[in-house]
Simulated scan of single mutants.
Amino acid sequence: MTKLKLDPIKDDKPVKVTLELPAALHRDLVAYAEILGRGSGQAAPEPVRLIVPMLERFIATDRGFAKARRERSGNGCEG
């Protein structure tokens, strides 16, 4: 089985998703947003705005996923 890390595939139309986060993860997102704001000298972004870039970054750097996707597309499947 392929090892994967946990960025949606970009599409022309955004897909709205509703999810529940564990309280500890939400606190981490709030802290991350505050640190990001301080580092950039701007106001802290809303924590929810961090989720998509984090997922995009995660998938973009997951070598196992990239390999599996290449193998899949090499078999004539789209994706």
Results as ranks from 00 to 15, higher is better:
K3S: 10
K3P: 01
L4G: 01
K5D: 13
K5I: 06
L6V: 08
L6R: 09
D7L: 09
D7S: 12
P8H: 06
P8F: 12
I9C: 04
I9R: 12
K10T: 10
K10L: 13
D12P: 02
K13F: 04
K13Y: 01
K13C: 02
P14C: 05
P14H: 07
V15T: 13
V15C: 08
L19T: 12
L19Q: 09
L19H: 03
L19P: 03
E20I: 05
L21Y: 03
L21H: 03
P22T: 07
A23T: 10
R27V: 02
R27E: 15
L29C: 05
V30T: 12
A31P: 00
A31G: 05
A31C: 00
A31V: 04
Y32A: 15
A33R: 05
A33G: 02
I35D: 15
I35S: 15
I35P: 01
G37A: 04
R38N: 15
R38G: 15
G39R: 12
S40G: 01
S40W: 02
S40H: 04
G41M: 01
G41Q: 01
A43R: 10
A43T: 06
A44D: 04
A44I: 01
A44K: 02
P45C: 03
P45H: 07
E46I: 00
P47K: 02
V48E: 15
V48P: 00
R49H: 08
L50G: 08
L50W: 06
L50D: 09
I51V: 13
P53L: 11
L55K: 05
E56G: 08
R57T: 13
R57E: 13
I59R: 14
I59G: 01
A60V: 07
A60W: 07
A60K: 12
A60C: 05
A60N: 14
T61C: 09
D62M: 06
D62T: 08
D62R: 07
G64R: 06
G64S: 05
F65S: 08
A66F: 01
K67E: 15
K67T: 13
K67A: 15
K67Q: 15
E71A: 14
E71V: 11
R72H: 14
S73D: 13
G74W: 03
G76L: 02
C77W: 13
C77V: 10
E78M: 09
G79E: 11
G79R: 03
G79I: 03
